[in-house]
Write a protein that binds this DNA or RNA. Structure first.
Lengths: 78, 78
DNA sequence: TTTGGTAATTGCCTTATGGTAATAAACTAA
DNA sequence: TTAGTTTATTACCATAAGGCAATTACCAAA
């Protein structure tokens, strides 16, 4: 909706990762330290991930790296 | 002030990097796409870097990586 | 059919990020 | 000394992230 920069999530990658590990959106939320509502909004492109989400993912899943999951680009929110 | 997770900046690293390159806080701010006030607040630990700052740094300075400049830990704000 | 787990959604609220001045202190060069 | 640059600070404001709670829909297993 605007041209501001934001951290983006590779939703497809994350989706696949979670499916392969059999982790539900709800479990994921808990591990990351945010609510299911927050995860869902981010996974469906209604919110950009903030510092709390990014940190939670990287701390909660040590096999994931910033560059794998996130990228830096322009805001794509609807 | 609280125990929430946030992205942190390696201020010493960034400070040194900018000094070595002879880049002022103001020039840096412009390159990153935020204001000098925002850069200053982040460099002095009064604000955590947000998505705009992180993205601006990584896009504006291709020789910098997320892992070099940032880390994921608990909020240290005063 | 009913239970249970999951994903999707939404309204309301709080807090954090970032902008916009504007100002002050410090330092350097002319 | 004065002008210019840089860093630090601050009050006020707008917007975005995230929580909370509740609801809906879907689908599989008992």
């Amino acid at each position: 909706m605007d041209g501001t920069k934001a951290i983006l999530v590779d939703v497809d990658f994350l989706q696949t990762y979670l499916e392969n590990k059999g982790i539900s959106q709800c479990q994921f939320a808990e591990e990351v330290g945010v609510t299911q509502s927050t995860v869902n909004r981010i996974m469906n492109g209604k919110r950009n991930p903030g510092g709390k989400f990014v940190t939670g993912v990287l701390q909660g899943f040590n096999d994931l790296s910033f560059d794998e999951v996130f990228s830096c680009s322009d805001n794509l929110l609807k």
